[in-house]
Amino acid sequence: HERALMVNRLQKLTRMLRVHPDPKWKQEQQELIKRLK
């Protein structure tokens, strides 16, 4: 369940980064990718 939330968050971040590349979001995205591996 928590994994699904993280995947959701990651997808949302990816969409937001396409619109507005924010370093903070980029960092969070990298963190999520690490944790999901």
Rank of each mutant, 00 (worst) to 15 (best):
D22I: 04
K12T: 10
K37G: 11
K37E: 08
N8Y: 09
E31D: 12
R15Q: 14
L36F: 03
H1T: 12
E2K: 09
P21A: 11
K26W: 07
K34G: 06
H1C: 15
K37V: 07
R9K: 06
R18A: 11
L5D: 10
T14P: 00
L32E: 00
M16A: 04
R9G: 04
L36M: 04
E2P: 06
W25I: 13
V19N: 11
K26H: 09
K24C: 06
R35F: 09
H1W: 14
H1I: 12
R18H: 07
T14F: 03
R18P: 00
P21Y: 15
L10F: 02
L36N: 00
R3S: 05
D22L: 09
I33R: 06
K26L: 13
Q29C: 14
E28W: 05
W25D: 04
L17S: 02
R35E: 05
I33K: 04
L32F: 02
E28A: 04
K24A: 10
H20F: 13
H1R: 14
L36Q: 00
Q29T: 07
L17A: 02
L36I: 07
P21I: 06
V19I: 12
R35Q: 10
K37I: 10
L10S: 00
L36S: 01
L32Y: 01
P21E: 09
K26G: 03
N8W: 08
R15M: 08
E31M: 11
H1S: 13
Q30G: 05
R15T: 04
R9W: 12
E28K: 01
M16P: 00
L13S: 00
L13D: 01
R3H: 11
L5P: 03
K26V: 10
K34P: 01
Q29R: 11
Q30E: 12
L13V: 04
L13F: 00
D22F: 07
V7Y: 13
H1N: 13
L17W: 00
K37M: 14
E31L: 07
T14Y: 07
Q30T: 09
P21M: 10
R18L: 10
K34H: 09
